[in-house]
Amino acid sequence: MAAITSPADRLIDPLTTTRTASLWRDTLANIVRQRNARVGLVILGILLFAAIFADVVAAYNPDKVLFDQGIKRLSAPCIHLLGCPATTPEHLFGIDANGRDEFSRVLHGARISLQVGFLTVGFAIVIGSLLGLIAGYASGRIETVIMRTMDVLLVFPALLLAIAIVAALGPGLINAQLAIGIVAIPVYARIMRSSVLSVRQSDFVTGSRALGESPIGLVFRRILPNSLTPTIVAGTLGIAGAVLDVAALSFLGLGAQPPTSEWGSMVGQDRGYLFTAPHLVFFPGVALAMTVFGFNLLGDGIRDALDPRLNR
């Protein structure tokens, strides 16, 4: 059966489809052209590989205590290629304070950090963008209520507010993600609202409205797609912040709980061994730093790629 389409659809959709495909292709090409973005992509590629194949790459279960294999807790890294005796089991990053393989835990930590970053920011973007979209399009009293609520949330320092939320909800990785997500909502709401305020005045929106587009259609088919770019850039940069914030909560004992191999909690639990077994803090610390670095580079690259002024 032939699809029934409105005159407006027939006029705009083909153009939009072609333009969207081209836009994303151009954007991707622009991103790859950025040196920062390339470095970021490589780092995050490694991270993604580690997260996906952690079970294969890691020689041990990250929660498995290895005392029965004759290892000693807090053992330094043992790499056979670097002269560690072949009779000693190889542990690339050493052994943690509970007798577990540090390398396996750091690898599995990548999975948690990626999950934390994407879920937290995804949650904040979805809720924040929706609120910003409604506020920007509806204006008036609805806008006032939404944006003043966002202002109230922004009054509090983000991490302190997150700590308060976790204290209320109880410690745990999910609650920590929720807290960081809630704290980040106002950022995306404000970005989306300002974009919407600009886009809704555009000629193509006016044209669509004149052609009989419904308010829902206007919002979700015309305004939202054209307001997303700043949110995406902010989201990419926000992932780094989210990973760091959740790690901070875990460091304080409010996020991931034992035996979860989350980098922040690993650093927090083993910080007492900074001088006696520095590898326990070093490796998860470096992994955390590289992840944040990677997302920041990629975010910068995306921002540059999407900035029409820099493209000229």
Partner: peptide, 15 residues
């Protein structure tokens, strides 16, 4: 002397 480590080890042993 090491509360969290002992608790974590008990968790592992019980598992």
């Amino acid at each position: 002397p090491s509360p969290t480590q002992v608790a974590t080890d008990l968790q592992s042993q019980l598992a």
